[in-house]
Design a binder for these strands. Sequence first.
DNA 1: CCATGCGCACGAC
DNA 2: GTCGTGCGCATGG
Length: 368
Amino acid sequence: MSEPYREWILGSIDSLRSRKARPDLDRICRMVKRRHGSDWDRTRSELENLIEEQTVLKVNYKGSVSYRNAAKVLRGRRKPEQSKCAAKQPSLADWSTGDSALGPVDEDHMEDMEDEMSTTAGMDSSMDEEGDESSLDAMCAQSTADSGISMSPITSSNASQPVPSPTSSKNSPTHDALRQDADSTYILPEHIQPAAQQDTGSVALMQQPAAICLSTLQAEEESALTPDPLLSDCTATPDEEVMSDGGPHAGSDPVEEGEMCAKSTTEEETVNSGGMNNGNDVVKTEMGQDPLLWSVADVASYFTSVGFPEQALAFRTQEIDGKSLLLMQRSDVLTGLSIRLGPALKIYENHVKVLQRSHFQDDSRLFS
DNA sequence: CCATGCGCACGAC
DNA sequence: GTCGTGCGCATGG
């Protein structure tokens, strides 16, 4: 998605919230349109993208669909009134297809899923409100899922669980594969939902979580790189745990996975410190090695050195080392570190993304 | 007409 | 009691 839209939409949501108006699709789109002249449909699709990448949470609040700025919804407090509905929900098994993926998930995730359920369940009422918007409405069932789960993914996965072991998923970017991998990372609802529901066409459309997630997130990366590959199941690699940790889209790309596999191992033995190629590499180079080899302290000092001492602390707190850094998604940076949106955006766009890009470019060069 | 401001009620914690 | 949310009404452009 394009940057401006992210800002516009988040800004609109914040604005609506500040004036005590429900940030629903209609209001958000109208505000974006009025303020920036953006096309309504475009706004809507961008919003969907944001939901996909969990920058925006779609929730069902008091019977109607509402949106939240994920960065401003702290896990600590409460989740937009779902608990009550969630309680009535059948069981996760229903929509999760009883998939084992749920097993290893920590409680936070479970909660999130319940939330999602509730939201989904609330579809009925939400339908009325946005009746005409079949697409989004339908999407509710699916993206809603995002709503609850998106909070502090990093935090929860890093802090509360050592990450099981990655599975063998590398065959194809299928939902199944993803679901399996979900075990080893924090679970993204999108990875699970697919199997669960398939209603309308529009829903089906949104049902491609894997693809969407990937495309959405990766698209931003300008497609050049292969961030996800890190999540591969290079089971033989000692890095495996770390590698899979924090990777929401584990195993989404078989090919790249392979590359990554090779790469991580290779790099381990042949410390590749050359081939850096851009501004940030000054520091990077100073550190004398590929980010992949950075320790938590290295990562922290990197961000300190580039002017984000405060945020560096957050990286340290979350125990983000080089591998984790290379695995970070935009949403991880924006919401997983509990740092302010402004610096978070800069950190992601100007550093994380760049490091990932250069890293993977080096990598591909290595294998070309 | 539309955007905005905000009192107030409600539910979660 | 605090806090987040948003309905419904008032106000202003």
